[in-house]
């Protein structure tokens, strides 16, 4: 019995010693920026596995490994509207071992909606590796709406009657608010949930409008259960049904493309940021990568380099801030 206790205390002492040693060792960083990456890079994605953000991150990761020889390990942290993931990366060591992969919904809309108390300025934004151009505005069959012009007309005849499905405080909520302002109409914005919930509720005739990715509603457009009204892109995305007009073509000055963002914790070596820009540029040129994006989400490859990306995001943030009161 005594012997056992002795053994236990020795082991407990070893544990304690381990802690002390651990405290002094925290600063061990990952070499210089030029050689980055020297080991697997952990990518925190703000969405659960299986969606479009995850798809973009994973596709990028596959080609990242081909280019650099080091794997990108994806961690899906969808919680808290993406705020858990952004907070985690913001507070982690700035040694290039942990990267954030998100889109403007988490990086900007969360701040505008007051979900997080920090902003994109608290990160070192590296680049925009891809831009989602697959989102379309869809109307349910029961709503009887056939086009954007028709929508505007009906909404003006009965303000606040036509329902719009969103996730309150999220990206789709903002999409609805901007649409209302640009088109000069008044919709009833409801909280419906994810894309799946939007589709079910539109099919069931419980809600009239929603912004959804094209791939998910393609079949329903063909069967006539849902009607695609417009795409949010600046110019028609030729990978979608070519007959879908942009809002601008319908007479509404409204463009809302969704850039994906790669960001590091603040204070990351500029050499690392230059390196990932180099890699991202190379990936965007890869024909296999381009084909994969089109096959998965009808999305043409597009890469926006560091300086230009920062400028674009800052502008986007300013635009969105105008809706701060409505979104909160």
């Amino acid at each position: 019995m005594k012997k056992r206790q002795l053994f236990a205390s020795v082991m407990a002492g070893a544990l304690l010693l381990g802690t002390l040693a651990g405290c002094g060792n925290n600063s061990s960083a990952d070499g210089g920026g030029e050689e980055w990456p020297t080991k697997a890079v952990n990518v925190v994605v703000t969405a659960s596995a299986g969606g479009d953000t995850d798809f973009n991150a994973r596709t990028f990761a596959t080609y990242f490994e081909q280019v650099t020889g080091q794997p990108m390990v994806i961690t899906n942290t969808a919680g808290g509207g993406g705020s858990v993931a952004t907070s985690e990366v913001k507070d982690s060591k700035a040694d290039g071992s942990k990267i954030l992969f998100c889109h403007t919904g988490q990086m900007i809309v969360n701040e505008v909606a007051g979900l997080i108390d920090y902003s994109m300025d608290d990160f070192d934004i590296a680049c925009i590796p891809a831009v989602d151009k697959g989102t379309v505005l869809v109307a349910s069959k029961a709503s009887g709406i056939t086009s954007v012009e028709d929508l505007v007309e009906k909404a003006k005849a009965a303000p606040g009657e036509i329902t719009y499905a969103s996730e309150l405080g999220g990206y789709s909520h903002l999409q609805g608010l901007i649409l209302m302002e640009k088109a000069g109409i008044d919709l009833k914005i409801l909280d419906i949930g994810s894309a799946s919930d939007k589709i079910t509720n539109m099919l069931g005739g419980r809600v009239d409008l929603a912004a959804i990715s094209y791939g998910a509603v393609k079949d329903y457009a063909e069967t006539g259960d849902l009607i695609i009204l417009a795409q949010y892109n600046e110019e028609r995305n030729e990978n979608l049904d070519p007959d879908i007009p942009t809002f601008v073509e319908c007479g509404i000055d409204f463009v809302m493309e969704k850039p994906y963002i790669i960001a590091f914790p603040k204070g990351t070596d500029q050499a690392i940021i230059d390196k990932i820009n180099e890699v991202a540029a190379q990936i965007a040129e890869d024909p296999d990568y381009q084909a994969a994006l089109i096959e998965g989400y009808n999305q043409p490859a597009e890469y926006i380099a560091h300086d230009e990306a920062l400028e674009l995001l800052a502008q986007t943030r300013e635009d969105y801030m105008a809706y701060q009161d409505l979104l909160q």
Binding site: A21, G22, A40, V73
Partner: peptide, 8 residues
């Protein structure tokens, strides 16, 4: 592909 805490 889950990196458990490496610590020391």
């Amino acid at each position: 592909d889950i990196i458990l805490p490496q610590g020391l």
